[in-house]
């Protein structure tokens, strides 16, 4: 297990290195940030000074090596636009995105798994069919449109919830978060639902399919033949087995929710990382882009590691040490 984790971490370092190289080359290929940052009527001298200040006068390999040198020291560079450390900019926005992602994932698990179970156990029932039809809407309607409709209904017509922004954060045990104040929660509900709709549909469909597959297996019949209550047969024998595919998908989706909450954050003016990365890409703010991607890659690596460990806990046939990946 320890060997497995160490090997995993070494691999992650390699992944981060390759990723930074690609981003460096990629952003360099798109264009020169100086064109955007400096006004059109700047003199040639001002221009040269700006280029030198940003370190863009050196060749790309030199810039990359300088970046790597700073990276080892924990310095991811300074934003071209804001003049602040890039990592700090990203990490400031990080909690807002995490709140949204955790909230959305919790919703999709606690709504999706029970509904999927029901639809899987009673596929012919009216409720079961309704759930499945509903889930098609969940992932086929465009995300931004769902968001706008939620705002229309709950913020404009019913006026129950605020339309956007993050609200006042509460503090609990020294942690500041939207979860600890009513105003914060009321601001969180709509964007979280918007983000959760797609994931919930996915979880419903995956749960249903796994239940349909598992329910006919001999060990489920055998469990029933032992005289177990249906609650135990479903709650333990079936659920523990379908958790294996579910955990994989939920893990991957959690990562993607954090990384790609851009649309929702834009619609609800949620001050998260997604908004920051979009702005930074438009302004070719390379240090922020790289810092953001390093944070996301590290997050994905952590999530995958957690999924693999959960896997070994759920399925006794999996041995972490034997895995190559």
């Amino acid at each position: 297990m320890t060997v497995f984790i160490i090997r995993r971490l070494l691999q992650s370092v390699l992944v981060v290195a390759v990723m930074t190289l690609l981003v460096f080359a990629g952003v360099y290929a798109i264009g020169n940030p100086v064109e955007i940052l400096i006004s059109q009527d700047a003199t040639e001298a001002e221009r040269a000074a700006a280029i030198a200040r940003l370190g863009l006068d050196k060749s790309l390999p030199e810039q990359y090596l300088a970046f790597l040198g700073n990276l080892v020291k924990g310095d991811l560079g300074t934003s071209f636009v804001f003049g602040e450390p890039a990592l700090q900019l990203v990490l400031q926005r990080f909690p807002a995105t995490m709140e949204l992602a955790i909230c959305a994932m919790m919703m999709s698990i606690f709504i999706g798994v029970p509904l999927g179970l029901y639809a899987g156990l009673r596929p012919e029932s009216i409720a079961g069919r309704t759930i499945m039809t509903g889930s098609i809407f969940g992932f086929s309607l465009p995300n931004f449109w769902q968001g706008l409709m939620l705002i229309m209904l709950f913020a404009v017509i019913l006026q129950w919830l605020p339309a956007g922004g993050r609200g006042v954060r509460g503090e609990f045990l020294g942690i500041e978060s939207s979860f600890f104040s009513w105003d914060g929660i009321s601001h969180l509900i709509l964007p979280a639902i918007n983000l959760a709709l797609f994931k919930t549909s996915l979880v419903i469909r995956l749960t249903r399919a796994s239940v349909r597959e598992t329910i006919n297996l001999d060990y489920v019949k055998f469990a029933r033949a032992k005289g177990l209550r249906p609650r135990r047969v479903i709650g333990l024998h079936v659920l523990k087995n379908i958790m294996i595919p579910l955990v994989t998908i939920i893990g991957l989706e959690f990562g993607s929710v954090i990384a790609f909450a851009v649309v929702t954050e834009t619609v609800f003016a949620w001050p998260g990382m997604g908004k920051l990365i979009i702005d930074s890409i438009f302004q070719l703010d390379r240090p922020v882009i790289v810092a953001y991607l390093i944070v996301i890659v590290c997050l994905f690596i952590t999530i995958n590691l957690v999924v693999d460990i959960l896997y070994a806990i759920l399925d006794p046939r999996v041995r972490l040490a034997d895995q190559k990946a």
Partner: peptide
């Protein structure tokens, strides 16, 4: 359900499939 397992028991064909793979024998 009270009869099942207590007064009438069943053994299945494929021993590879009758025990739940993710639960220990004592649990089962």
């Amino acid at each position: 359900r009270d009869l099942r397992g207590r007064r009438i028991a069943m053994i299945f064909q494929d021993p590879m499939m009758t025990l739940n793979p993710v639960l220990r024998v004592d649990t089962q």
